[in-house]
Nucleic acid binder design. Sequence first.
DNA 1: GATATTTGACCTGC
DNA 2: GCAGGTCAAATATC
Length: 337
Amino acid sequence: MDWERNMLLNELTQGRELTNLLRNHLHPSSPHETRQVLLEKILCSYEKALSMLNWSGFMVETNPRASTVASPASISHTSPGSDASDKKDTFKKRKTCSEWSEQIRVCPGFIDDGYCWRKYGQKDILGSNFPRGYYRCTYRYSQGCLAAKQVQKSDEDPTIFDVKYRGRHTCNQASSLIATTVPSATEYKAKGGHSRQMQHQLEEKQKQSKEIVLSFETGLKVKTEELDNRDNIFPSFPFPVESEEVENGLFVKSLMESDKAFVSPATSESNYFSVSPFHMDSFGLGQNVRTPESDLTEIISAPTSVANSPIVDLDVSSLEKLEFDPSFLFDNPEFFS
DNA sequence: GATATTTGACCTGC
DNA sequence: GCAGGTCAAATATC
């Protein structure tokens, strides 16, 4: 609970500091790229903070669907231990899993929800221009994690991916990733990250983030070549993004031009949240979602969700009405009490 | 060689 | 019978 609050404070404070930096760069002699990058980082910080709130179950209304109500008969098929009929059970279980959907405006590399997904299928959907991709947790077999998701491009706006999550993450990453969001690599070690590779990746990402921030703080011009190095900035993008869109930067462009960039539930059935450019990895690495739980034994969980994750105890009903005061001190503890 | 992705076939529910 | 969801062999990538 405390660390989530600290994460939130950290992001908001960072946003404030970056805003100050941007103010210092407003004079015409300041490189345009620097201002642009600062702007992106500010947006990123605020979106991360907003997303943290969302994932704590405040503003984002995920959508357990009517079809997710399992009949008693179907539940009986989900009982573990069936052997020869495993395959059949899988299909029978199909409609019984609780699920919900989110519409996510994505930029390349940013919807790294922190979990490892393996694509196991793709299907053309009737009436949809784009195929639907089927993903399941990488650790499905090694750890029996049943989390899965479906990703499909929106017909209306190809920059939006409709993501449906199904099943709870029961794999190790569900717990270990929480700790990697903000804590340092050292802390990560202390918490016992489950692989050396992940630890290395975390350190690399932190290093990259530090370098970027350092370049801001020292007033250095950020090289655009580095920004173009998508492998560095957007090291993991789990969704099937068309390469040309990544190549020509349409995602970033559309994000910049879009007024839907921030959390704005567009419909009663979907939620938009965007993820901004620049080192969203830490962002992705510890997303915690408080998901609406069903009464069923199969409890919904976003990939970003962790059933056993701590939940920030905030009253966001007040936040919804909150006018954003630029002078507001985010590190005011009373705000979060 | 291990792991991930692709893709056609198969199964289930409607 | 059709559409959606999954499997699994083939293929690609690291």
